[in-house]
């Protein structure tokens, strides 16, 4: 468990599965819930329980992000890519739009970036946002993420087509999100 100035970041427990259902109702589509065919999937509580219970060396576990009151506000993780290129897919999902403006969101992103760029020495991280996820997109672009482009009409849900945007942040542009590296002791 990591106590930050504005909350707590801890590995998600199977018990958190219920919080996912509460925070992410199916009426608001999220890029995180898209599978490789870009179809929306809504895992059941039991399936989330299994996801949170998985231990895979190549992926970070899911982390729950709590505010100072101990309320789970969202979940984060970093999915490793293939060994071909060193990048990872960053997942940062909060239940409420205003949570992206809260300081614990910034801390959560710093935690992921530190893991990606300092510990795993990744070259870049990528993230995806549906056109409905405006707060998440604004949060990422304000912190150096740049758009790689928009895939048009990839998802059909609630009677209309949705676009999916890909964003990326390179390690060279992430300095503001990382603690200053100390020079090795002589």
């Amino acid at each position: 468990m990591i106590r930050t100035e504005h909350g707590v970041i801890r590995t998600a427990d199977p018990d958190d599965a219920n919080a996912v259902r509460r925070l992410f109702p199916p009426d608001r589509p999220r890029a995180f819930f898209l599978d490789r065919r870009r179809e929306l999937t809504y895992p059941t509580v039991d399936e989330f329980w299994q996801i949170f219970n998985q231990r895979d060396a190549s992926h970070l576990p899911f982390y729950a992000v709590e505010d100072l009151a101990g309320q789970v506000q969202g979940f984060i993780t970093l999915r490793a890519s293939t060994s071909e290129a060193s990048f990872g897919e960053l997942v940062l999902m909060f239940g409420h739009e205003e949570a992206y403006e809260a300081p614990f969101a910034e801390e959560a992103l710093q935690f992921l970036c530190q893991t990606a760029f300092r510990e795993r020495r990744m070259n870049k991280v990528v993230a995806q946002c549906l056109d409905t996820e405006t707060a998440c997109r604004a949060f990422l672009t304000a912190r150096g993420f740049e758009s790689d482009g928009v895939q048009r009409e990839v998802l059909y849900t609630q009677g209309c087509w949705r676009d999916l945007e890909s964003l990326s942040l390179f390690s060279a542009n992430a300095a503001a999100l990382l603690p200053r590296e100390e020079a090795p002791a002589r």
């Binding site: 290129a85 990048f87 790689d148 482009g149």
Partner: peptide, 21 residues
């Protein structure tokens, strides 16, 4: 639609990958 920069490695060099729709 997409330019995924430095996305794939070939012979020790990272290359971009393009996505078309």
């Amino acid at each position: 639609e997409l330019t995924m920069r430095e996305h794939v490695a070939r012979g020790g060099t990272l290359y971009d990958m393009y996505g078309y729709g």
